[in-house]
Design a protein around this nucleic acid. Sequence first.
RNA 1: GCUCCUAUAGUGUAGUCCGGUUAAGCAUUUUGGCUUCUCAAGCCAAAGACUCGGGUUCAAAUCCCGAUGGGAGCACCA
Length: 485
Amino acid sequence: MEREGLPELKNAEHGKVITRFPPEPNGYPHIGHAKAAIINSEYAKMYGGKFILRMDDTNPEAERMEYHAAIKVGLEWLGIEFDTVKNTSDDMELFYEKGIELIDSNMAYICTCKREDISQNRRERRACKCSTDDIVKNKKNWEKMNKKFKPGDAIVRFRGDMKADNAVMRDPVLFRIIDGKHYTLGEKYRIWPSYDMAVAIEDSIDGVTHAFRSKEFELRKELINAILDALNMRKPAQDFFSRLEFKGMPISKRIIKPLIEEGKVSWYDDPRLPTLEALRRRGIKPEAIKKFIMSLGLTKANTLAPFDTLEAFNRKLVDANSIRLHMVNNAKKITVKNLPISTVEIPNHPVNDLGKRRVEIDGDFYISGDDAQNIKNGMQVRLLNLGNVNITNDGIELGGEFIENGDAKDIPKIQWVPQKTAHKIKMIIPKTLFNGDEFNEDSLEEIEVYTEPHYLQLKEGEEVQFVRYGYCRKDSQNQAIFTHK
RNA sequence: GCUCCUAUAGUGUAGUCCGGUUAAGCAUUUUGGCUUCUCAAGCCAAAGACUCGGGUUCAAAUCCCGAUGGGAGCACCA
């Protein structure tokens, strides 16, 4: 059986599937976000269901509007559409209600132990004294968390199982005190639900039927189910997929931030990064990302994806409407005599009708240094779209004589740019940022090249193919970024 | 250390639940050819894999046991 796209879901009814993508607005969106968003959104689409974007914003210390906005921009660029957009923090009152319910039913208690002690007890699978406090005392302490206690003084813990093999189940945190200013709610609340509490409640009340998360959350599944059971709430099906990273391209802010601060990387849109913004600048199309991610499947095996697969998808997308332009690198001069014409019309694409451009010529050209080295005296070469030339090369100066009606078959073909109108641009070539753990000091190559003046008429962001060189994205009038071959 | 997840060609995957129909399909990569006024695209072809060791069975990539490699968790981050 041939399978289109993602594997079938268990217990999925057409029209009734609800999925969600819950990013935390604590950084710029990257390829990993794209994977989670695309998989969840594709499943909703596949079953004619609904898809929710939920900003998971329950840690005021980490979250910022800047990131919130960047995530929205990134998702829009990817072309992902949502039926509902919400914030986890919209439901603070509900979290409190459910939290109190857990305390009332003795499924949760307030713990006032020191952080280190809690950690050690977890490791040693020992309960602490607080776990035996009665409901009355717990309720009193809950009130105190609102004002009297300082951050770190007290937390609400779920009554799991301190002896459990799954360490996540050893009385995990449900609520903690954070005094920081939340990016949308300010100082309205200071008791914040933990990830597990928030996700459990949210997925349940949002009607999420299938939740797909990356593998590092796998151990949380048991806890989320336990919380929901304790509350008598509906449980979504949970499944997991491997994290997506590219070789040598760090995803974590912990690594990227210092690079930016040290000036080793310009910003989150530096084309060497796997952020969505960077991929966009580099010339990768959203559709290519989608196809690429779908081709990865739902495996739980670790993936260190090869960038060239992404490039292959992109090349196929971009080829049909990338204008072909001449560009020369490491330019060498050549003067061609006996040119019978002063202008030549060149098609913008070999097979598709993308128009033509008129190029003025006077016999003085630039060609690429590599080509100049390979052409010998007496040789015949084809100046692409122009005609054949008999080369004279005395070792110092390159010259040539135009041959009318030369046959293009079986002779070297090279691209050229008229000296008079040549437009100089900077070509940026992104390479792998890291070799293992080593920062690659040569990860960004910049070269000065000449291109046809027609380049100036292209829109910014347009993809072009520099003939015999590769696909590049116009970054500005004076700069292009190498996308791939 | 404990627990969980995972293991198919250079790379990424399909197949593994329900053992035989596939001596393993697809994509990428590499190489060769056709086409072409590009070293692109398109078309054709070739190369290349079931981690290891036991067991069950007429039959195992698929089931069981063990080993080994890789990843994750053991946060008042998500």
